[in-house]
Nucleic acid binder design. Structure first.
Length: 269
DNA sequence: AGCTCATGGCGAG
DNA sequence: TCGCCCTGAGCTG
């Protein structure tokens, strides 16, 4: 369910609910039992996100590293943890809160060096103040791959997923098929800046809204359905429907095993 | 009850 | 490029 904005808000929620307190850590499902034992009862220091990777810090210099993948989910709530239901890989508990993690691609305990190595593997994250977009630019401008594929590469744009990829290209009127080397500096800068705005907004709202305020009246009476991802978007999962701006049909195609949505007239060459 | 799909990413070939 | 891993929701019947 997550693109980077969700992981950032989850990091904040975990830090708020558990930060500074000794935390009971277990793995009701059992698959993370050994890892949980390494940090069970230790004071949880904080949590932070780098792209879609979440790192939870414990006072014994160990980190729980979580990547949700396509199916992973956190449930973070106040009160006493309910009776175990479903497959809970990791559970955090203190006197006031509990958190349950299901279905992650990665859930492991790392030392400090391993954590730094994991962070080094991802590129700049538009949500993070310390992100250096030049690391992405040098790779984009040298690449023959399409900008649509490059936006999904976590070594270039950490935290961007299929929705932000589609929407930022629509908003900037850039075809997803344009090779990276054909993306101008001005276009790259517009993409990066737009991602910082859209994704920061996503962290705050916990949903992806990309439709500009001036276009909202335009689309209000035309919304055909509410998708699970919530929010209002221009092209994502709108295959075959009319483009809100030019009226032609939104297209869908497979790009590297993921669905790509775009509006050809609005996003030329 | 069973099938399909999903906002990811990895390793084999 | 393909198959596979993780899980749950929303269909269909």
């Amino acid at each position: 369910m997550p693109e980077g904005h969700v992981v950032h808000s989850q990091a904040r929620a975990i830090a708020r609910a558990f930060g500074g307190k000794a935390t009971e850590v277990d793995s009701p499902q059992g698959r993370f039992a050994d890892g949980a034992a390494l940090v069970d009862g230790v004071r949880l220091v904080g949590a932070e996100a780098h792209g879609k990777h979440l790192f939870i810090a414990f006072a014994n210099d160990r980190w729980v590293h979580v990547h949700l993948g396509l199916f992973g989910k956190w449930r973070i709530a106040k009160g006493e943890a309910p009776a175990e239901q479903g497959l809970i890989r990791l559970r955090l508990r203190n006197a006031t809160h509990y958190a349950e993690l299901r279905g992650p691609t990665v859930c492991e305990v790392l030392g400090d060096d391993e954590r730094l190595a994991a962070i080094a593997r991802v590129g700049p994250d538009p949500i993070r103040a310390d992100a250096d977009p030049m690391r992405a630019w040098v790779k984009v401008t040298r690449s023959r791959s399409s900008i649509g594929a490059l936006l999904m590469d976590q070594r270039l744009f950490a935290g961007v997923g299929n929705i932000y990829r589609a929407e930022v290209l629509f908003r900037q009127n850039i075809s997803p098929y344009r090779p990276g080397a054909m993306v101008s500096w001005a276009d790259f800068e517009a993409i990066w800046t737009d991602l910082t705005v859209l994704m920061a907004d996503g962290v705050k709202r916990r949903r992806i809204d990309t439709v500009r305020p001036e276009h909202m009246p335009e689309i209000m009476g035309r919304l055909a359905r509410k998708d699970r991802h919530g929010g209002e978007v221009y092209v994502y999962r709108r295959e075959g429907m009319d483009c809100y701006l030019c009226g032609s049909a939104i297209r869908m195609a497979d790009m590297q095993a993921r669905k790509l949505y775009w509006c050809p007239p609005c996003q030329p060459g």
